[in-house]
Design a protein around this nucleic acid. Structure first.
Lengths: 330, 330
DNA sequence: AGCAACAATGACAACGTTGTCAATTGCTCT
DNA sequence: AGAGCAATTGACAACGTTGTCATTGTTGCT
């Protein structure tokens, strides 16, 4: 493994200058910087995080605030955070409490770099207010928030929702039920918007009876799908705002004796582990929670880049599996 | 944060001796060791892994072999592994391939401490044979294996299975269907055994029609429960060998118009995230995959303790939720 | 008691990086 | 051109631990 001393020799500078370049410090001549970066590339240098952590007095702890009822969500998030921390030699401090006292005490810890907030905490106004009065940076996960400070990482929920709705429309569905997510989650609103825009763009009328209020739980998916299937003008497809509700919708379909996707198409959102666990496997939107959190860690780990009030939009993808099919001719 | 130098002063020895005690090296007088350990406790010393990793030339990478179709299983395992690695300042090398070439190449990497095998790889005879011919230690996850070398970490599957079966019996069930796990998994066998023993111990006869072969998937749970519910002598309760199949069983119950737990009780195994996602939430057996893997990392991280061919049995717990209830009087 | 052999302990360098401060370079202005 | 100043670069210590090797203590033997 090459060290900064090897790089220094190759670039013809002192190893301290190499250190400066790697840490993106100011006052390095562009030409010097370039020489160093070239050497780094040629020798395939990787920072030794052990040495850095030993010597450096920088804070090393990331506070992750998460309070989500879904275990699988929590796990994905934690996994991504740990992956990021391993990469940058940081430590993770997981917290499920998010009262003012907790946050202030975390922020006043000199070891804390900053915070990562996950939904629904990332949309909590009190928390955002508390944090913006403190000196520590924070990164929010979820949808962009006009008023909120801090960097935000998200996918384009509206567009993703639009696309998956259009997928159903293209299969011939024109009565598409929509199960909203929990009202505390900003993403839920964006997903509804995408659905409505897709209907409109394709000349379908929005029928408010087909839009019901869920809470991201399996149970709500189950109950609300039963309600939707009890309507006079039954939907031939159901768009649940997350995979757990879609799994619940699937159960409701079984209960009514409907075959999926033959008699009812169902789509979810997230591509969480449950999407592949159920039968038939769910058509859904993949967003990589792990990647989002890893990105969040990266942003906090590199303090010099200007992150304040930035919005990072990551990719999503439609995942077509077995829970969607052509609409029945009626 | 105290350092080994502080400890040394307190204990009246050189800091090198402290290092020796902390690393469980030989040739330290018991009295000296004790003085050091006391000082460690008093000052609440924690090893600085950065300094250790910087200076030490010991290997730092744990190779985790995992190839399980269940995403939620994979996530839990990875999470536990990363948690353990963070604790001991190690790096994780995740692998889904487990052919001889891959394993040999990992083992010949000087940075590799050893392997952690997860089911079904941990029960794969070829892999075990390959590994026992190599010099690297390995820890197996899953059930104990009479012939296999290496340390093994598991819960007492047989006893856990016995207890949850008895729970059903105590609720008045005497026709209990059993969905076996995938045949490649040794744990599956143990769970069947516990079920059979519980029936026998409670004076119930084993009815082979009630025992069906699943594969740990939701789909198999769904199909096989439909089959069980189609029998002349229908079961009033179903024991699925994992939570995903139990979720499938739940779907089958819905399909038949049965209410859970009123007309059919269902239990799972693992307490995976899906157990709390479905409705009603599953009665199941909690085994902490994360803890098991963390333990495995610990065993590899502390090379001096003699781990060869040891069996570590961790706790499990019955988790009573809403998918079980008294048997109907018939 | 004296000596060898080995057990137990200590002294000190080294790991690869960042922090501190000093030295050098380049630029602006007279 | 030279002074003055800021920008840039370099020299070297320091972080807390483990590795190497030297030194001291202890035991068993003659």
């Amino acid at each position: 493994m090459p060290t900064i001393i090897d790089i220094a020799k190759k670039a013809g500078v002192s190893f301290k200058t190499v250190s400066r370049v790697l840490n993106e410090e100011v006052n390095v001549r562009p030409a010097t910087r370039q020489k160093v970066l070239d050497a780094v590339k040629i020798l395939n240098y990787r920072t030794n995080t052990a040495a850095r952590n030993l010597r450096s007095k920088r804070p090393k702890v990331i506070a992750l605030l998460i309070n989500n009822p879904s275990q699988s969500y929590t796990q994905s998030v934690q996994l991504g955070a740990l992956l990021g921390c391993q990469k940058y030699g940081l430590f993770l401090n997981l917290h499920t409490k998010y009262d003012k006292e907790t946050i202030v005490s975390l922020a006043s810890n000199a070891e804390t770099i900053g915070f990562i907030l996950t939904p629904p905490i990332s949309d909590n106004k009190k928390v955002l207010e508390t944090l913006s009065n403190l000196r520590k940076p924070f990164v929010r996960l979820g949808t962009k928030h006009p008023k909120a400070a801090g960097t935000c990482i998200c996918i384009d929920d509206r567009q993703a929702s639009y696309k998956i709705t259009e997928h159903l429309i293209n299969l011939g569905h024109n009565q598409i039920g929509f199960i909203k997510g929990h009202a505390d989650y900003e993403t839920a609103t964006h997903r509804l918007l995408g659905y409505q825009e897709a209907l409109e763009a394709n000349g379908l009328t929005t029928n408010n009876d087909l839009i019901v209020q869920g809470d991201f739980s399996y149970a709500s998916g189950l109950v609300l799908t039963e309600k939707l299937l009890g309507l006079n003008e039954k939907p031939t497809a159901i768009f649940a705002s997350n995979d757990e509700m879609a799994a619940g919708a699937l159960a409701a379909a079984y209960k009514k004796g409907l075959r999926v996707p033959d008699s009812l198409s169902i789509v979810g959102f997230d591509d969480s582990p449950i999407a592949m666990a159920v039968y038939p496997q769910l058509t859904t939107v993949r967003q990589s929670l792990s990647d989002m959190i890893e990105k969040a860690v990266e942003i906090l780990a590199k303090p010099q880049t200007d992150n304040k009030n930035k919005i990072v939009i990551l990719d999503h993808a439609l995942v077509l599996r077995d829970s969607t099919g052509p609409a029945l001719d009626t």
